[in-house]
Design a protein around this nucleic acid. Sequence first.
DNA 1: TTTGCCGGGGT
DNA 2: ACCCCGGCAAA
Length: 273
Amino acid sequence: MAAAALTSLSTSPLLLGAPAAAFSPEPGLEPWKEALARPPGSYSSSSASGEWGWDLASDQSSPSTPSPPLPLEAAHFLFGEPTLRKRKSSAQAMFQCLWKSCGKVLSSASGMQRHIRLVHLGRQAEPEQSDGEEDFYYTELDAGVDTLTDGLSSLTPASPTASLPPTFSRLELPESPVLTSMGAPQACHSDHAYPVGEATGGSWGQLSGHSGGLEPQPTEVRACVPALPARMGVSLRKPRGDAKKCRKVYGMDHRDLWCTACRWKKACQRFLD
DNA sequence: TTTGCCGGGGT
DNA sequence: ACCCCGGCAAA
């Protein structure tokens, strides 16, 4: 595959740095289908036993396989979003409120802090003697305003252009008091301490009824929600991951290409959230 | 309706 | 362990 990519790369002068473009003669097509239709005769031998070289994590010994094929969605936004990479001339710093379903954008950090203090934290506009909690509820945008998909309703997740470093996407509000050793005031009185997931997947369980008597104590964990949205009965269920999973990507046919977890109807391991 | 996947089986 | 599926909830 790498060889094919290289050869065809040499013949396609344009589209710099997008080797995946070699796979699709016309950019409208899904590149993965192309890749699927391609006879796997080019590299090594038969890795067609379900998992390709790149399962995840435990991939320390793949001697003959060249570089991992790089999950095809990488190719998606290599040329799927050609528009986004253009520089905004008005690269003015903006600040966006991360509070759930707010998304207000202001042009100054102090203004944003005041907005958060007043609107969300319910405090008075006293910039002095602020514990800095507001800082966790907004983020800074570096591009122009219209780059972001316009505040509200767009629960757009990991924007394909991974430009913003580890900033949070709203909907998963920053768990504020985790970082503040000085402790936010009373932002943390959740009466029902729900179980927080363990290390990796954080399988939440579906809060299936109070079956047994276990749960000795409300294991007070730090997953505290900002105390405001204590209302409205949003079921505290792990939100669906928004990544396309094996089933969607490969289709019901080609089930043999799914990762094992997907085949067993477990949480997908290949396309994590 | 489809999709993701938890919980609960079976081998 | 591995494999499968009922059924639920989110989309």
